[in-house]
């Protein structure tokens, strides 16, 4: 994305509407804890106590999310040559929950500063997994299941993006 040069543009009819809600926030939700946009020069520093609290709730949330994901793989084990449904639904449901969470905490409620690190970065970040999905694909490819591998990669990506988008849109309609 290129920076806009206002002096090159035709005179604007009025001030641009300020983005609100999650459009006003950085794409990376983990950086939203700092003031945005960051001040040029040195990176902003979060006080040590606050940083320790953030790291603790992320670790705790990550452990909860990982237990839920690991539990799901024990309840619904997947055959190594079959479509990895368990990881697929883990990732898609985690993405839907992310869409709901981000609308609720950026557009509807003002929440405690530890809610986003705990639920977003910790629980949902730990519940969903990119690496397991990649290794699932590798195993399918190694097993000669090219079509299943391609279907798995594209279906996970498409369903995950659709889940974030649809969950956010439905949450906005329901509560914002």
């Amino acid at each position: 994305m290129t920076r806009e040069h206002p002096e090159d543009d035709a005179p604007a009819p009025g001030p641009e509407p300020k983005p609100t809600g999650w459009a006003a926030e950085p794409a990376d939700p983990d950086t939203a804890i700092d003031p945005w946009p960051p001040k040029p020069g040195r990176p902003s520093r979060t006080p040590a106590r606050e940083q320790a609290a953030i790291l603790s709730v992320i670790a705790l949330g990550g452990a909860l999310g990982a237990c839920a994901r690991y539990g799901a793989t024990l309840i619904w084990p997947t055959d190594p040559t079959a479509f990895p449904w368990t990881t697929f639904w883990t990732n898609v449901s985690g993405c839907a929950a992310m869409g709901v969470l981000m609308v609720l905490i950026t557009e509807r409620f003002t929440v405690h500063p530890l809610v986003r690190p705990f639920l977003g970065t910790g629980v949902l970040g730990g519940f969903t997994t990119f690496s397991t999905a990649t290794i699932d694909t590798q195993r399918l490819l190694d097993g000669g299941r090219l079509a299943t591998a391609l279907l798995y990669v594209s279906a996970t990506l498409a369903a995950a993006l659709a889940a974030v988008w649809a969950a956010a849109a439905l949450t906005r309609r329901a509560v914002v």
Binding site: G65, A66, N91, G94, G120, F130
Partner: peptide, 10 residues
Amino acid sequence: ATLSTYSTYS
């Protein structure tokens, strides 16, 4: 699995 994330990625 926890180090990586699909929710933040999407």
